[in-house]
Simulated scan of single mutants.
Amino acid sequence: MLPPIGTRPRSWRADRRFRETGRRPASAKGRGPQSRLDQWSEEQDVIVCGVCGAAITHRDQAIQINHRHDHAFFNPAGIAFAIRCFRLAPGVAPQGEPSSEFTWFPAYQWQIVLCRTCRAHLGWLFTHTDGNPAFHGLIADRLA
């Protein structure tokens, strides 16, 4: 569940500083996937989790799949999702086994991805069955 519009997570000051400066506090540097975000240039825009404000990816990681960055799909339950495609998203972690059932991208299997910080469902990791590069489809309204 997303917080009401206009609210900020408890750690909004540190996350705002990160978005403004691109720098994490010294205690956060060099640990796991977050360190990859720390290595990216300060000038690039950080995309954060809409629930907790944790860094998820950068705008320079945006890619086009089937000639589009933004896609809209329905899942089997009829729920609509607007997703954006990214090459890397070190702020999420895949869950479960890859599945090819009801995939939105032919020849790709998907796995749910969760925010590494708050465990909110942020989208899917799509892995090509022929070994082509994987990509992340992140739910647009769950990112900030």
Rank of each mutant, 00 (worst) to 15 (best):
M1S: 10
L2Q: 03
G6K: 02
G6S: 03
T7D: 11
W12Y: 15
W12K: 03
W12T: 04
R13T: 11
A14F: 09
A14K: 14
A14C: 06
A14Y: 08
D15T: 04
R16Y: 13
R17K: 14
F18R: 11
R19F: 05
E20H: 02
E20F: 04
R23A: 09
R23F: 11
R23N: 08
R23Y: 09
R24D: 09
R24C: 12
S27N: 09
A28C: 10
A28F: 13
K29P: 03
G30Y: 04
G30E: 05
R31S: 14
R31M: 10
G32C: 08
G32M: 07
G32F: 10
G32W: 13
P33G: 15
P33K: 11
P33N: 14
P33T: 08
Q34S: 13
R36T: 10
R36Q: 14
Q39W: 10
W40N: 08
W40C: 08
S41A: 14
E42W: 10
E43G: 15
Q44P: 03
D45F: 06
V46Q: 12
V46Y: 09
I47F: 11
C49W: 05
G50N: 08
C52I: 02
G53M: 07
G53S: 08
G53V: 06
A54M: 03
A55Y: 06
A55W: 09
T57E: 11
T57G: 08
T57M: 08
H58S: 11
R59N: 12
R59A: 13
R59T: 15
D60L: 07
D60M: 07
D60F: 13
I63L: 12
I63W: 12
I65W: 14
H67M: 12
H69F: 13
H69P: 09
D70R: 11
D70P: 02
D70H: 14
H71A: 01
A72F: 01
F73N: 00
F74A: 03
A77Y: 02
A77G: 04
A77H: 02
G78T: 03
A82G: 04
A82Q: 07
F86G: 07
A89C: 15
A89R: 05
G91S: 12
V92A: 06
V92H: 03
V92K: 01
A93C: 10
A93T: 15
A93D: 10
P94Q: 10
Q95D: 09
E97W: 04
P98N: 04
P98Q: 05
E101H: 07
F102L: 05
T103H: 05
W104N: 04
F105M: 02
Y108D: 02
Q109S: 15
Q109R: 15
W110N: 00
I112N: 02
I112C: 01
V113S: 08
L114N: 13
C115A: 11
C115N: 11
R116P: 01
T117H: 15
C118Q: 03
R119I: 08
A120W: 02
H121F: 06
H121V: 00
L122Y: 00
L122Q: 00
W124F: 05
W124L: 00
W124T: 00
L125F: 07
F126L: 03
T127I: 12
H128C: 07
H128T: 06
T129I: 14
T129W: 05
D130G: 12
G131M: 10
N132E: 15
P133N: 13
A134Q: 12
H136D: 05
G137M: 01
L138G: 06
I139M: 01
I139P: 00
I139A: 00
I139Q: 01
A140F: 02
D141H: 03
R142Q: 04
